[in-house]
Design a protein around this nucleic acid. Structure first.
Lengths: 258, 258
DNA sequence: CTCAGCTTTCCACTGGCCGGGAGGAGTGCA
DNA sequence: TGCACTCCTCCCGGCCAGTGGAAAGCTGAG
């Protein structure tokens, strides 16, 4: 009386992949039973599938029996376009920028209603830091986020305005004000925040544009994070712009060969 | 007369994962039929499985129909221990090092008989560069490789000595000489190369050690790449050592909490 | 128009997947 | 030392999800 019975319509493959969903940055190491529970898979099944994943190299089994993401997935991840096209081109520019201005520099793209941080160069001391390569933060409370939102299609903007979550007491949560703020960002071609995401941190960001025959396209945002009391931010805008244009130009060149 | 017949013993999961093996840094974008051929999977089967992989987010389908690695795999890859433990700890040190000495700095671990580059900070100009985050180079022809090999178990050393492939006319390919070279590396606690991997590039590397109750353990190598004519390399050794010890200390601290 | 090369869909057949449950290994407590 | 508990590994018969050859779309070139 064994046989098939598990949730119908779920393919083997989707189950196996579902197991990987159990891993996230908060819990990068999991035991068999944790994975089984998180993914709603019977223990025996999870055990078998995890064995296959580990055999291929998607996961590694540690000495204590827990599983973690394997080197093969790391390798494959490096081939993702986020990584390849953008990061590789941008890295030296972020580098230079960081050498010049000494503050934390980062590059983000829009993913839905969030800013996805794809590259970062940070000083050692610096300000309290929330972002990290791979992390996602709300568009409305970060410098890079505002830049990306200002360039996003109308429906994205509308959805974003409907979900202005408060992060600190300085976060802009009024749709009207945010709308004006975005117009301002488009006009000035840069965005600022001051303790809107986390206390003790201000930021400045500019768009990175790809030149196309039918006009420019914002593909990313380049930003810096600084202590909020610094009053010389406007002075840094041109520096950011130079780097952003450099990245944009390089991207336009390499993008052609496709 | 259709039904099952494909190579028996191959599980669905392993087939699906096998499709991912078709992707590598030389070919990060592939069409359905390319993937099917590379992986030896019948077209119809590949099509179905790729659909599932894309549905989950492991792959993305581009407008032109070709597949590429998806954002989900990128995310998961960032959770791999190579990335997490080592890279995160080491990044600021590499940063400082690069600010001080201006040359390309990188960090590698041993993977079998190869040096796997896990992190890199490079100048813009610099020397012709082969290594890149995620790339693998032979142990015997690179600075970091020699350091890692010098610390490797005997059987690894023996296997490596049996496969000293020539990369340039300066590559050490004589097992006897290499054996002496490794002894020297252990004694001096740093390694050098001069155009042994690629013409126009010399390197210098030191070990990164984890302190354990039963003695130190070499977990990585920290190296720089410079033009071969520079004669002040020995002067840089202490600088590298300071950074390497910093990384090692930090690793030892965080490793404790496991 | 035809043709070639690719992708997508169809569908009858069957062997690989399923998972409850037994047994093993490791750990904490008395 | 024995017992209770948790976590992992393995087994095995029933059956449905996966299989892949073939044929039908879909381009774009000539």
């Amino acid at each position: 009386m064994a046989g098939h019975s598990g949730a119908p319509g779920r393919s083997v493959t989707s189950r196996a992949l579902g197991l990987l969903d159990a891993f996230d940055s908060a819990t990068p190491r999991l035991s068999l039973s944790e994975i089984a529970e998180r993914s709603g898979t019977p223990l025996a099944t999870a055990h078998r599938l995890l064995g296959e994943l580990a055999g291929w190299g998607a996961l590694t089994r540690r000495a204590d029996g827990r599983y973690e993401i394997g080197r093969k997935l790391w390798d494959l991840g490096l081939l993702a376009p986020v990584q390849m096209e953008l990061r590789q081109v941008a890295a030296p520019f972020l580098q230079d920028l960081h050498n010049t201005i000494r503050d934390t520099v980062h590059l983000a793209v829009r993913e839905g209603l969030q800013a996805l941080y794809v590259e970062r160069v940070s000083g050692r001391e610096s300000v309290p830091m929330v972002s990290q390569v791979g992390s996602r933060l709300p568009l409305h409370a970060t410098g890079v986020g505002k830049v990306l939102l200002a360039a996003a299609p109308t429906d994205v903007v509308e959805r974003a305005l409907r979900s202005l979550t408060r992060q600190t007491r300085h976060t802009l949560v009024d749709p009207g004000r945010m709308r004006r703020e975005l117009a301002e960002v488009r006009r000035r071609r840069y965005a600022r925040t001051s303790e809107e995401m986390s206390a003790g941190a201000a930021s400045l960001a500019v768009p990175v544009q790809l030149e196309r025959s039918n006009g420019p396209l914002v593909v990313a945002a380049l930003g810096i994070v600084v202590p909020p009391h610094r009053r010389d931010l406007p002075r840094l805008v041109p520096v950011l712009e130079v780097a952003a244009r450099g990245i944009g130009r390089e991207l336009t060149r390499t993008r052609d060969f496709r």
